[in-house]
Design a protein around this nucleic acid. Structure first.
Lengths: 145, 145
DNA sequence: TCTGAAATATAATGTGC
DNA sequence: GCACATTATATTTCAGA
């Protein structure tokens, strides 16, 4: 995991569809060497997968909200309960008054309300505190360099 | 933007490195037809780019926190001020008491503290309320199906 | 661990349906 | 808009340094 690996990752985050020859040139390596390093980064799990970034609004998910989920019980084993709600994009156990923070995308605020209803149905959930996003400044990949 | 397009996007989110022949088979299309639809989805901006998903911990960013940024002034034009802090992965203008919600990744809590310091330095920022993530249940792509 | 080249597979394009 | 065929291009592998 040296500077060349980090540069490769940064390039791949920018465009994972480019040829290895180009990728190698960007970091000062031959196509074969770039290929080899990327393969190892995948094997070691540093690179988890190649994926596409989509426009949520184009998929009919123009509403973004963060929801603090308050609970009475220990939520450390409740991962599946949250994963079962498809509108939830992220779920994190947090330190503080609430116990879980979730990121939710829906088409409408009515659907957001329905997600809150389903969150209340999870065993141990006491309350929710939803914060609706008015504008997203930016969402960018994990910093590689 | 029909069900086939949505299925294509879901498949590409799972693995954007697969061949068009496989991709087409997964949604009941020939390789050429799949290729054509994906090209159009890119042109229309539904698919923004092909990228790689990385393990933040492997890049030395094991600390994740969400920070509510309170402000006195209107923060609607402050995008660049937040973007200038590389540890900030996402920044959203929100409805509610705070005005901006940011997602931050650092190596240590000391570095998180330093990010808070830099947030305070932004014109109009009154205070911050950081919530450290203890465990991430999941982070998954935008729902396509 | 890299380079360079050869074999193999895929992408991209165009034609007809 | 889809399927098929053809060309161009990239991936993948391997020998050698």
């Amino acid at each position: 995991m040296d500077d060349v690996d980090r540069a490769l990752i940064a390039e791949l985050q920018r465009d994972a569809a480019q040829a290895y020859a180009l990728l190698g040139r960007a970091v000062g390596l031959s196509a074969g060497a770039a290929h080899d390093r990327v393969r190892k980064l995948r094997e070691r799990g540093v690179i988890r997968r190649t994926t596409v970034e989509v426009d949520p609004a184009a998929l009919g998910q123009g509403v973004l909200a963060f929801v603090m989920v308050d609970s009475s019980a220990w939520m450390g084993e409740a991962s599946e309960s949250f994963a079962a709600i498809p509108e939830i994009q992220e779920a994190h156990v947090i330190a503080g008054t609430a116990s879980v923070l979730v990121k939710v995308r829906t088409a409408t605020t009515e659907q957001l309300q329905d997600v809150l209803r389903r969150l209340y149905a999870i065993e141990g959930v006491n309350g929710t505190q939803a914060t609706v996003v008015l504008e997203t400044f930016f969402e960018r990949p994990v910093r590689a360099d």
